[in-house]
Each structure stands twice: as structure tokens, then as C-alpha cells.
Write a protein that binds this DNA or RNA. Structure first.
Lengths: 188, 188
DNA sequence: GTCTATAGATGGATAGAC
DNA sequence: GTCTATCCATCTATAGAC
């Protein structure tokens, strides 16, 4: 049922994610849905709880990614096939009218920033990487159409950003060869 | 009436922007509102038409900004007091469930990219700047709460991004002194 | 042009059978 | 646990007075 709710939020927006539509998509009746989630607010709370679990797992995956945490982070910003990204996009849509969802997104950002700063050792660069990720993410979350996954930022934008950050990371000083400076730091 | 519609979309989301609420906020009755905009769809179309007018003016302002087009562009990404930015945020909210609004946002991005690329002369950097701007913009659009303008990215994030881009621009080659390379190009 | 009144559809939620 | 039936509020839109 949370899957159906996520899918509707992501693909058709908050307004279309009615109890009726969620129940139909989940293959149950409205009454059946309301047995598990007594109110619409409870359904939302269930989604936010799931997000919290998934973000913890994502941070752990970032730390051990072979391409390094930053590149893994940016490339996964537009991924559309993991439960985590789908949940995040759904919550972003909810955040329009829900303070709790907005707070949940802010918390995710805070946790990401801490880990990226830890990886690159540069507060300015970490915040900029977060912004680039937000650009990729929100663009892909909001501009993506139902049937057109090519809308919004795609591989082209992400590759451009990765190259730009590599230039910076390569010029930082501690690195050396220019192809992988602090970008890939702590990836080993 | 478009002002009232914009304000409701921006502050309380698509779902709260009902004909009733818009009419009340505009100080007219529902019937009065529907005299000028026969359907809700017509109201939306009116907002998109206004956006088109405002983006044209914004591109012109970018070209003549004293701090250069890129810095002007990034700093204005989180501005909350211009009619253009308020309209853009409102349309971003509509884009959840409206194909026309989504297309309008994509068009704005296309026009921005062309102008930024023209200013920095580097496609990768231009696309990255767009992503940073989207990060600032969507963050400020979506995380901003009714009474808390400090949520989402603020001056701190923007300053960080400007410094990072300056580093890049200063390292580009054609510039020289490092404090203003292609960043401020064509600003004179 | 702007209003009130109301129609018709749909939203969230409850009651009670099975 | 899941269903159908139903209540009540609200939404878009129409009709018609002023």
C-alpha cells in the first residue's frame, strides 16, 4: 500500500494520491486501506518512517561506494529505480503541503551534508555538491513526466557536473595527478 | 486574481489553491473570479502566460547585471521578492500535476542554459551552473515554510557556490588574476 | 461585472456485514 | 482483515438575480 501511495505521488502528484486511488492501485478497497492506515495522515506518516529507514541505508552505501562517496552521491541523485529515490521523490511532492514532509527532507539534507563534508573536507565544496545534487534531484523529480523519463536532467548534466567537480578536486593541492583529488578521497 | 493564485500556490501548495480560496484572497466571490477565468484551467493558463512575459524580462536583466550574468543568475535563484521568482515557484508547484506547467518550466530552463552558455563559453560549466541554480531554487521553493524564510538554501549556500565557481573560472586559462575569470566575462 | 444559490462529482472517513 | 454502503464536507462549474 505504501508502494502504491509512493507510485501515485511520484507519477501523478499529491492531488491524485487520494485514498480511493491508492486503494485501487494497491488492489484493495478503501475500507481495506483504512484498516491499516486509519487516516490519510497515518498513511503519510508511514511513508516518512520508511524514508528514515532508507536514508540510513543510503548513507552507509555512500561510505563504501567504489567510485567514492561524492560521485556515487551525484550519480544516485537521478536514479529512478531504487526504493530510496522513489520514496524521496514522493516525499518531495508531499512537502508542498505538509510540514512534516518538509522537515523530513530537511533532515535528509542535513545528514547528507555532514557525510559529504566529511568526505571532501571542504565546507564550501560540500554545500555546492549538495546544491548540484538538489538540482539534479528536484529537476528529475519535478520535470519527469509520466511517460517521458528523458525530461529533466539526465546523464548529460550529471557527467558535466562530475567533470567540473573533478577539475576542482584535482586543483586542490593535496591530491596530485588531477584525475582524482579529494573527489575520490576515502573511497579506498 | 493571478497574484492571489500565485500567493496561494507558493505558500500553501496546489491543493490549497482552490477557486474558493483564490476568490477569497483576491477579495471577490467565486462567481466574480469565474467571470474573468471561466475554468480553473484558464486560471492556470493565465499564470503560464505571465511567466513567459517575466522570463523574457529576466533574461534581459541578466545580460546587463553589473556583477556579471552568472553571479546575478545564482543570487537571484533564491530571491523571494520579485514577481518573476514568485511566479516561477508557483508554476513549479503546479508542475506536479500539469503537463503544461512542466513544459513551461522546461522552456525557462532551456532559455537560461542558452544564455549562461553564451556567457561562460563552456557547456559543462553552464550545465553545472544551471544545476546549482536549480538546487538553490527548488530548495528554496520547496523547503521554504510559510513563516520560516530561513529554511532551505540561503546566503550561506549561495556564497559557497559562488566561491567554488570563482575558483574554477580563475583556473580556466583565458582569465589571469584568478579573482574574476570567465565568471564575469561579458559583464562589462 | 459581481453577486448568491445550487447542481453534480469527488474527497476523507465511519458503520457494519462477512 | 477486507468488503460494501453511506455520511458529510468540499471542489468545480452553472444559473440567474442585481
Amino acid at each position: 500500500m505504501l508502494d502504491a501511495y509512493t507510485d501515485l505521488l511520484e507519477r501523478r502528484g499529491e492531488r491524485a494520491a487520494t485514498l480511493d486511488a491508492v486503494a485501487r492501485a494497491a488492489g484493495v478497497s478503501k475500507g481495506g486501506l483504512l484498516y491499516h492506515f486509519a487516516t490519510k495522515h497515518a498513511l503519510e506518516a508511514g511513508l516518512l518512517a520508511r524514508l528514515d529507514t532508507l536514508v540510513t541505508a543510503d548513507l552507509a552505501a555512500m561510505r563504501t561506494a567504489p567510485e567514492g562517496p561524492v560521485e556515487h552521491f551525484l550519480r544516485s541523485s537521478a536514479s529512478d529505480d531504487t526504493p530510496f529515490d522513489r520514496t524521496l521523490r514522493a516525499v518531495a511532492r508531499l512537502s508542498q503541503s505538509s510540514d512534516a514532509a518538509r522537515q523530513a527532507l530537511a533532515d535528509v539534507n542535513t545528514r547528507w551534508l555532514a557525510q559529504i563534508r566529511d568526505a571532501v573536507g571542504d565546507d564550501d565544496l560540500a554545500r555546492t555538491i549538495l546544491l548540484i545534487s538538489d538540482g539534479i534531484y528536484y529537476g528529475s523529480a519535478l520535470l519527469r513526466e509520466q511517460g517521458d523519463p528523458t525530461a529533466g536532467p539526465g546523464a548529460r548534466e550529471i557527467d558535466a557536473a562530475v567533470r567540473v567537480i573533478r577539475r576542482l578536486a584535482g586543483n586542490e593541492g593535496d591530491g596530485a595527478d588531477g584525475s582524482r583529488g579529494s573527489l575520490a578521497a576515502r573511497a579506498d
